[in-house]
Protein backbone atom coordinates (compact mmCIF):
# COMPACT_ATOMS: atom_id res chain seq x y z
CA UNK A 1 0.00 0.00 0.00
CA UNK A 2 2.87 2.37 0.75
CA UNK A 3 4.02 2.12 -2.84
CA UNK A 4 0.57 3.13 -4.05
CA UNK A 5 0.41 6.01 -1.60
CA UNK A 6 3.76 7.30 -2.87
CA UNK A 7 2.55 7.01 -6.45
CA UNK A 8 -0.54 9.06 -5.57
CA UNK A 9 1.21 12.34 -4.99
CA UNK A 10 0.97 13.69 -8.55
CA UNK A 11 -2.77 12.99 -8.39
CA UNK A 12 -3.02 14.61 -4.97
CA UNK A 13 -1.16 17.66 -6.27
CA UNK A 14 -3.69 18.06 -9.05
CA UNK A 15 -6.78 17.26 -6.99
CA UNK A 16 -6.06 19.70 -4.20
CA UNK A 17 -6.83 23.03 -5.93
CA UNK A 18 -9.87 21.59 -7.71
CA UNK A 19 -11.20 20.28 -4.42
CA UNK A 20 -10.62 23.65 -2.72
CA UNK A 21 -12.58 25.28 -5.56
CA UNK A 22 -15.37 22.72 -5.13
CA UNK A 23 -15.62 23.35 -1.40
CA UNK A 24 -15.66 27.10 -1.95
CA UNK A 25 -18.35 26.77 -4.64
CA UNK A 26 -20.56 24.73 -2.33
CA UNK A 27 -20.16 27.23 0.49
CA UNK A 28 -20.92 30.16 -1.83
CA UNK A 29 -24.02 28.36 -3.10
CA UNK A 30 -25.36 28.40 0.44
CA UNK A 31 -25.14 24.65 0.99
CA UNK A 32 -24.29 23.41 4.44
CA UNK A 33 -20.60 22.63 5.02
CA UNK A 34 -21.50 19.12 6.15
CA UNK A 35 -23.49 18.43 2.97
CA UNK A 36 -20.68 19.68 0.73
CA UNK A 37 -18.14 17.56 2.58
CA UNK A 38 -20.42 14.52 2.41
CA UNK A 39 -20.54 14.95 -1.36
CA UNK A 40 -16.78 14.54 -1.55
CA UNK A 41 -16.77 11.74 1.01
CA UNK A 42 -19.50 9.68 -0.69
CA UNK A 43 -19.35 10.49 -4.41
CA UNK A 44 -15.62 11.10 -5.06
CA UNK A 45 -16.12 12.11 -8.71
CA UNK A 46 -15.16 15.72 -9.35
CA UNK A 47 -17.06 16.70 -12.49
CA UNK A 48 -20.36 15.25 -11.32
CA UNK A 49 -19.95 16.89 -7.91
CA UNK A 50 -19.47 20.29 -9.55
CA UNK A 51 -22.50 19.59 -11.73
CA UNK A 52 -24.66 18.57 -8.76
CA UNK A 53 -23.81 21.64 -6.72
CA UNK A 54 -24.02 24.01 -9.70
CA UNK A 55 -27.39 22.67 -10.79
CA UNK A 56 -28.82 22.74 -7.28
CA UNK A 57 -27.66 26.34 -6.91
CA UNK A 58 -29.59 27.16 -10.10
CA UNK A 59 -32.75 25.65 -8.68
CA UNK A 60 -32.80 22.45 -10.76
CA UNK A 61 -34.84 19.70 -9.00
CA UNK A 62 -32.44 17.57 -6.92
CA UNK A 63 -33.22 14.22 -8.52
CA UNK A 64 -32.77 15.62 -12.03
CA UNK A 65 -29.47 17.16 -10.93
CA UNK A 66 -28.34 13.77 -9.64
CA UNK A 67 -29.29 12.03 -12.88
CA UNK A 68 -27.39 14.61 -14.93
CA UNK A 69 -24.41 14.07 -12.66
CA UNK A 70 -24.63 10.35 -13.29
CA UNK A 71 -24.59 10.91 -17.05
CA UNK A 72 -21.24 12.66 -16.62
CA UNK A 73 -19.90 9.52 -14.97
CA UNK A 74 -20.95 7.03 -17.66
CA UNK A 75 -17.36 6.71 -18.84
CA UNK A 76 -16.45 5.13 -15.50
CA UNK A 77 -18.17 1.95 -16.69
CA UNK A 78 -15.22 1.31 -19.02
CA UNK A 79 -12.51 1.57 -16.39
CA UNK A 80 -13.13 -1.63 -14.45
CA UNK A 81 -13.16 -3.91 -17.50
CA UNK A 82 -9.90 -2.32 -18.68
CA UNK A 83 -8.27 -3.10 -15.31
CA UNK A 84 -9.88 -6.55 -14.93
CA UNK A 85 -6.94 -8.47 -16.49
CA UNK A 86 -4.68 -7.13 -13.72
CA UNK A 87 -6.94 -6.73 -10.69
CA UNK A 88 -10.30 -8.09 -9.59
CA UNK A 89 -12.53 -5.25 -8.52
CA UNK A 90 -14.02 -5.24 -5.05
CA UNK A 91 -16.26 -2.58 -3.52
CA UNK A 92 -13.40 -0.56 -2.09
CA UNK A 93 -11.39 -0.64 -5.30
CA UNK A 94 -14.45 0.46 -7.27
CA UNK A 95 -15.11 3.35 -4.91
CA UNK A 96 -11.63 4.75 -5.58
CA UNK A 97 -11.88 4.36 -9.36
CA UNK A 98 -11.59 7.96 -10.59
CA UNK A 99 -10.20 9.03 -13.99
CA UNK A 100 -6.77 9.69 -12.58
CA UNK A 101 -6.55 6.59 -10.40
CA UNK A 102 -7.60 4.51 -13.40
CA UNK A 103 -4.97 6.04 -15.69
CA UNK A 104 -2.11 5.58 -13.21
CA UNK A 105 -3.22 2.05 -12.31
CA UNK A 106 -3.51 1.01 -15.96
CA UNK A 107 0.14 1.90 -16.40
CA UNK A 108 1.47 0.51 -13.13
CA UNK A 109 -0.48 -2.68 -12.41
CA UNK A 110 0.83 -4.84 -15.29
CA UNK A 111 4.39 -4.37 -14.00
CA UNK A 112 3.61 -5.37 -10.41
CA UNK A 113 3.56 -8.88 -8.96
CA UNK A 114 -0.10 -10.02 -8.67
CA UNK A 115 0.13 -10.17 -4.89
CA UNK A 116 1.06 -6.48 -4.65
CA UNK A 117 -1.52 -5.09 -7.02
CA UNK A 118 -4.44 -4.70 -4.62
CA UNK A 119 -2.36 -2.94 -1.99
CA UNK A 120 -0.88 -0.63 -4.60
CA UNK A 121 -4.30 0.25 -5.98
CA UNK A 122 -5.79 0.91 -2.56
CA UNK A 123 -2.84 3.11 -1.60
CA UNK A 124 -3.20 5.04 -4.83
CA UNK A 125 -6.92 5.51 -4.30
CA UNK A 126 -6.54 6.42 -0.65
CA UNK A 127 -3.93 9.10 -1.41
CA UNK A 128 -6.19 10.64 -4.03
CA UNK A 129 -9.22 10.44 -1.73
CA UNK A 130 -7.46 12.11 1.19
CA UNK A 131 -6.27 14.98 -1.00
CA UNK A 132 -9.75 15.45 -2.49
CA UNK A 133 -11.41 15.55 0.90
CA UNK A 134 -8.79 17.72 2.58
CA UNK A 135 -9.09 20.22 -0.29
CA UNK A 136 -12.88 20.20 -0.04
CA UNK A 137 -12.73 20.84 3.69
CA UNK A 138 -10.35 23.74 3.27
CA UNK A 139 -12.50 25.19 0.48
CA UNK A 140 -15.63 24.96 2.62
CA UNK A 141 -13.79 26.72 5.42
CA UNK A 142 -12.88 29.58 3.11
CA UNK A 143 -9.25 28.76 2.48
CA UNK A 144 -9.31 29.42 -1.27
CA UNK A 145 -7.02 32.37 -0.51
CA UNK A 146 -4.28 29.76 -0.19
CA UNK A 147 -4.26 29.57 -3.97
CA UNK A 148 -4.06 33.34 -4.47
CA UNK A 149 -0.25 33.33 -4.50
CA UNK A 150 0.70 34.46 -8.05
CA UNK A 151 0.84 31.52 -10.42
CA UNK A 152 0.28 28.86 -7.75
CA UNK A 153 -3.36 28.10 -8.49
CA UNK A 154 -2.71 27.96 -12.23
CA UNK A 155 0.39 25.81 -11.78
CA UNK A 156 -1.49 23.28 -9.67
CA UNK A 157 -4.35 23.25 -12.17
CA UNK A 158 -1.91 21.88 -14.74
CA UNK A 159 -0.74 18.94 -12.64
CA UNK A 160 -3.47 16.61 -13.92
CA UNK A 161 -3.00 17.42 -17.64
CA UNK A 162 0.75 16.87 -17.18
CA UNK A 163 0.08 13.55 -15.46
CA UNK A 164 -2.36 12.41 -18.16
CA UNK A 165 0.18 13.42 -20.81
CA UNK A 166 2.89 11.17 -19.36
CA UNK A 167 0.42 8.32 -19.01
CA UNK A 168 -0.83 8.80 -22.59
CA UNK A 169 2.65 8.89 -24.15
CA UNK A 170 2.97 5.10 -24.66
CA UNK A 171 -0.39 5.06 -26.45
CA UNK A 172 0.19 7.91 -28.89
CA UNK A 173 1.17 5.47 -31.66
CA UNK A 174 -2.02 3.47 -31.21
CA UNK A 175 -4.41 4.50 -34.04
CA UNK A 176 -7.52 3.49 -32.11
CA UNK A 177 -6.43 5.54 -29.10
CA UNK A 178 -5.64 8.50 -31.35
CA UNK A 179 -9.03 8.27 -33.05
CA UNK A 180 -10.74 8.08 -29.67
CA UNK A 181 -8.74 11.08 -28.49
CA UNK A 182 -9.79 13.00 -31.59
CA UNK A 183 -13.46 12.16 -30.95
CA UNK A 184 -13.18 13.28 -27.33
CA UNK A 185 -11.37 16.50 -28.23
CA UNK A 186 -13.93 17.31 -30.94
CA UNK A 187 -16.85 16.96 -28.53
CA UNK A 188 -14.88 18.81 -25.86
CA UNK A 189 -14.47 21.79 -28.19
CA UNK A 190 -18.23 21.72 -28.74
CA UNK A 191 -18.81 21.86 -24.99
CA UNK A 192 -19.82 18.19 -24.69
CA UNK A 193 -16.84 16.79 -22.80
CA UNK A 194 -18.69 14.03 -20.94
CA UNK A 195 -20.23 12.61 -24.11
CA UNK A 196 -16.87 12.88 -25.86
CA UNK A 197 -15.18 10.80 -23.18
CA UNK A 198 -17.97 8.24 -23.25
CA UNK A 199 -17.69 7.95 -27.04
CA UNK A 200 -13.92 7.63 -26.72
CA UNK A 201 -14.53 4.55 -24.59
CA UNK A 202 -16.97 3.19 -27.17
CA UNK A 203 -14.40 3.85 -29.89
CA UNK A 204 -11.89 1.80 -27.92
CA UNK A 205 -14.33 -1.09 -27.70
CA UNK A 206 -15.17 -0.95 -31.40
CA UNK A 207 -11.50 -0.69 -32.29
CA UNK A 208 -10.82 -4.00 -30.58
CA UNK A 209 -13.70 -5.68 -32.39
CA UNK A 210 -12.40 -4.40 -35.72
CA UNK A 211 -8.96 -5.79 -34.97
CA UNK A 212 -10.37 -9.17 -34.03
CA UNK A 213 -12.28 -9.52 -37.31
CA UNK A 214 -9.12 -8.84 -39.27
CA UNK A 215 -7.14 -11.54 -37.53
CA UNK A 216 -6.50 -14.60 -39.74
Amino acid sequence: MKRGLRAAWPIALGYFPVAVAFGALGAQAGLSPLWVQLTSLLVFAGASQFALVGLLAQGVPPLLAALLGLLLNLRHAFYGPALRPYLRGGPLEAFFLTDEVFAVALRALPGLPPGERRGYFLGLGLGAYLSWNLGTALGVLGAQGLLAFPGLGEALSFALPALFFLLALPHLKNPVALLAGGVALGFHLLGQTAWGLFLAGVTGLLGEGFGERRRP
Binding site: A82, R84, F164, A177, V183, L197, A200, E208, G209
Partner: peptide, 14 residues
Protein backbone atom coordinates in the same frame (compact mmCIF):
# COMPACT_ATOMS: atom_id res chain seq x y z
CA UNK B 1 -12.52 -3.63 -22.44
CA UNK B 2 -11.00 -3.91 -25.91
CA UNK B 3 -8.77 -0.89 -26.33
CA UNK B 4 -10.95 1.30 -24.13
CA UNK B 5 -8.11 1.75 -21.63
CA UNK B 6 -5.57 3.37 -23.96
CA UNK B 7 -8.37 5.20 -25.78
CA UNK B 8 -9.65 6.79 -22.57
CA UNK B 9 -6.19 7.73 -21.30
CA UNK B 10 -5.42 9.59 -24.53
CA UNK B 11 -8.88 11.20 -24.47
CA UNK B 12 -8.48 12.30 -20.85
CA UNK B 13 -5.13 13.85 -21.68
CA UNK B 14 -6.46 15.85 -24.63
Amino acid sequence: AGQAGPALVVALFL
